[in-house]
Design a protein around this nucleic acid. Structure first.
Lengths: 132, 132
DNA sequence: CTGCATCCTTACCGATACTG
DNA sequence: CAGTATCGGTAAGGATGCAG
């Protein structure tokens, strides 16, 4: 498998782009990563998940959950009670996705120091040649 | 490592967010993934890379390469000739990043059929209850 | 050839108000 | 509690023109 398979076959048209790219965007999206990570441990209710993640608006959490549910990563179970109670948990496919994304997140976390060092070098080199 | 470490410690302020999240966004960005994938095989010149990836504007490719260079993933070598010749290749850190992202991309690719099936189910269930 | 600068459109996302 | 609907600020990103 090469690069060409990952890109949309039609560069000029403004089409949806390749399917795998869409899935990748869903699971690596800002809140998608955090939702998958949280649900790795256990199931959550909506507000509970919102509090756990922190900093996510209702709108974005609902949107993220819907996308992940539609992709088959998250199962949603709404109980017809008052007040409403809705639980979310990972499907088998979702657990796989979460593990993959989590692996990438862990690698990223480990390498942050190296990246920050590289940035410092890069910025220092720029400082010397531009203004001075 | 839990979810809280991945999120910004200050949900209310509009600060840069946690460092690992930024790195994650760089390597999983639309063009970042493709650049890393392309450079896994060999080094490329700018326009050569542009043609190989396909569908990327000059602006976005330059921007992506700068970000990846600053993060220490890509090395840039500009030769002072006319016409200019600039080559890009992966650093050791970049090769690691590329492998990680590539693993995720491969998993995604493999699971696309399952996701599409899930979407079909989801959409079919919605069709029946909304309009009809 | 390899960029950088500018304009301009789009689409994301947060805030707010409202529903069942 | 668990969402939906709408508005608006902002930033991503494509197109174009110009420079080294």
């Amino acid at each position: 498998m090469g690069v060409r398979e990952v890109v949309n076959g039609k560069p000029d048209v403004n089409e949806p782009m390749c399917p795998s790219r869409l899935v990748l965007e869903h699971v690596t999206s800002r809140w998608g990563v955090l939702v998958l990570a949280a649900l790795m441990e256990r199931s959550y209710r909506f507000s509970e998940l919102r509090r756990t993640i922190g900093g996510v608006s209702e709108k974005m959490l609902a949107q993220t959950l819907q996308t992940l549910e539609r992709d088959g990563f998250v199962h949603r179970e709404a109980q017809p009670v008052i007040p409403p109670r809705v639980d979310y948990w990972l499907t088998g496919l979702g657990k796989e996705a979460a593990e993959q994304v989590w692996a990438l997140a862990r690698w990223t976390e480990r390498r942050v120091p190296a990246v920050q060092a590289a940035r410092a070098d890069y910025d220092r080199a720029r400082e010397g040649t531009v203004t001075n």
